[in-house]
Amino acid sequence: MTEQSIIEYLGTPIFGICLSIIVYLIGEWLFRVTNGFFLFQPLFVGMVLGIFVLWLMAHSLKVDVAWLYRHTYKPGGDLLFWFLTPATIAFAVPLYKRNDLIKRFWLEIILSLTIGLLIALYCIYLICKLFGIHDAGIASLLPQAATTAIAMPIAEAIGGNPAITAMACIVNAVIIYALATFLLKAFRLNEPISQGLSLGSAGHAVGSAKAIQLGSIPGSMASVAFVLISIVVDLVVPLFTNLLGISQ
């Protein structure tokens, strides 16, 4: 097949939409038949399977994977991706439903997120140094607590690679969605407010959706965390990199 005919047959949004839905449904099915084996989280399976399908197609059609992605999957993928915008706004509802908690704990929330983020940033910095990651790599990994749309421009501004930042954000979400219950148990995190704040910060919108499943307290705390942490990252990360002398 020539490149022209690939675009002609697969270049419409419906290819990307179909592929996304089918791989996700396969993930859901696998998750169900294995009684919820954590590696078979629908999001994780969908992502791996989708990339594998594109890679397989690129190899059999002898084109570049990135080229194939841009011309066949992206039109439909972008369409679905857009719906994350109203889905993000929707988190105002669980947040508002427990507004009583926000009124009582606003100071603790702000302090925990700011100080917690600073400690976490320093730990991430140390881990990167331990692995021998260069400054550009560190700059790409530091903004990952923010939502992708904030993390990427910040990474770029402090001299990182936005593609790595985007990867970090999506991997965060996948890990938290798959391992949240296990991690909360392993680290004995039983306090519902702490559970919510940490799930929202580490797992972004997906982590907040997970927290909502745990209850209305973690749900509302995660919703506030995932917005606030983004803004804290916005303010703190550029200063932090300046302090450590990473950014140019």
Partner: peptide
Amino acid sequence: SFLFVPSG
């Protein structure tokens, strides 16, 4: 979690 599939 489905809407994050395209990002993945």
